[in-house]
Simulated assay, not measured.
Amino acid sequence: MNGILYSATVFIWGSTWLAIAYQLGDTPVVVSVAWRFGLAAIALFAILAFQKKTPRLSAENHKLAALLALCLFSNNFLCFYAATQYLPSGLNAVVFSLAPILNALNLWIIEKRRPSATFIQGALIGFTGVVLLFASQFMNAEMDWTILLGLMLSLLGTYFFSMGNMVSAHAQRKGMPLLPTTAWSMGYGAIYLVVIALVMGLPLGVTMTPMYLSALVYLAIVGSVIGFNTYLALVGRIGAAKAAYCTVLFPLVALSLSTLFEGYEWTCLSALGVLLVLTGNLRVFGIPQPVKRWYQSSIA
């Protein structure tokens, strides 16, 4: 069962980046993200109602849910969607895989938890990999500086996500129920985005094409509801540290799909960059015990 949950999480999270690329076009980014989390919130509330778990929060907890919405279910995805206009979706996923490293940096800044030497080594390796990966893109694009804009947007979105993790951890320490909090946060995120769209004078309609609508449903239901719950189930069964290996593997899925469907072109430099990003994450998390056991048995 753990293998099924793990594989499902890696594939779902790895494939959502390509689905984001399919949403770009006539519908404004802010409207697309609003619909995504609006539908996801409705689905989560429906699940909670079916389970007869009333999603009630105190007034103070609603404030935290709204803050979580700003970090995790709105502004971060505005950045990711905008970045996908300038970057292949797989590169967006590689940048996002640095989220655990940013989490540790935020804990250092906010809670004064100094990272270990192992973490610092992994972080430096990972960031070096991103630099090499995008150096390859600059050379291929003949110094197309829109790639730099895409990188900055992707990093900003990842930082918003990391701050959302800090807010979520604080909320869980306060004993806030996870799924109801998520449902309310997704709802608040959708409302926030709708308000932005209205202030900007944007229509709330979406592109009524099979490609756009299928991507929207996939992102809302599979990416935001099912993927979130498979990950939570995995955390409950094997622990957060082991479940975090998903962030190491899903960029490989994203880059494979980007190669197949977006024509992403690999170079020696980009391959080395991806390898360093993965190595940096593995340095931070450590080598999985099953791999260690396999290696020890193979040399015995």
Rank of each mutant, 00 (worst) to 15 (best):
F261Y: 09
W294V: 15
G175Y: 00
L102E: 03
Q51M: 10
G175E: 04
L133K: 04
L198V: 11
V31D: 01
M208Q: 14
A83I: 07
R114Q: 14
L18M: 06
L255S: 10
F11R: 01
L107A: 15
T9C: 08
I196P: 00
I287F: 10
C268I: 11
W108C: 12
S258I: 03
I299S: 12
S136F: 02
I42N: 02
V274C: 07
Y86E: 04
W145E: 10
A41T: 04
P210G: 02
Q23A: 07
K292S: 12
W145A: 06
S297Q: 15
G205S: 09
T267L: 04
L102S: 07
L5V: 05
M1E: 05
A183R: 05
P290D: 06
L148S: 13
L64E: 10
I299H: 15
Y159L: 14
L102K: 07
A254G: 05
A244E: 06
I109L: 14
I20S: 00
A215S: 13
A254K: 06
Y159M: 13
S258Y: 01
A99V: 14
I47T: 05
S256K: 06
S256Y: 08
L102I: 13
L98R: 10
H62Y: 12
L179A: 10
P100V: 12
Q137A: 13
C71D: 02
F127C: 08
A93R: 01
I110D: 07
S154Q: 02
A46D: 03
S185C: 05
N61Y: 14
V253N: 00
A8V: 05
L5Y: 07
I12C: 02
L269A: 11
I110T: 09
N61G: 10
I12G: 00
G263D: 04
G122D: 05
S116Q: 04
Q289P: 08
H62R: 14
A65P: 00
S297C: 15
L124W: 04
Y245R: 02
V199E: 08
G90A: 02
T27S: 04
Q51C: 09
A141C: 10
F45Y: 11
R56D: 06
A69I: 02
G189D: 05
K63H: 11
T259N: 06
G263V: 03
G122A: 10
P177V: 06
A40Y: 01
R237G: 02
L278P: 05
Y264R: 12
L155Y: 08
I101V: 15
G205E: 05
T181D: 12
L178C: 07
A104G: 12
I101L: 15
V167E: 07
V33Y: 01
L151S: 08
Y6F: 08
V29P: 00
L278R: 06
D26T: 13
M152C: 15
M139N: 12
L219A: 00
V277I: 14
L213T: 04
T118A: 14
F261W: 04
A183F: 02
P100S: 09
P115S: 03
N103F: 14
F96Y: 14
F11V: 08
F160K: 00
L216A: 01
G239Y: 05
L278Q: 12
Y212L: 07
P55M: 07
F119H: 08
P288T: 08
E60I: 09
I42L: 13
A123M: 11
L105T: 07
M1P: 03
Q121R: 15
K63V: 10
M208R: 12
L67D: 02
L219Q: 05
L39C: 03
P55Q: 08
F11D: 01
L107N: 11
G263H: 02
W184D: 01
S298F: 15
G239V: 05
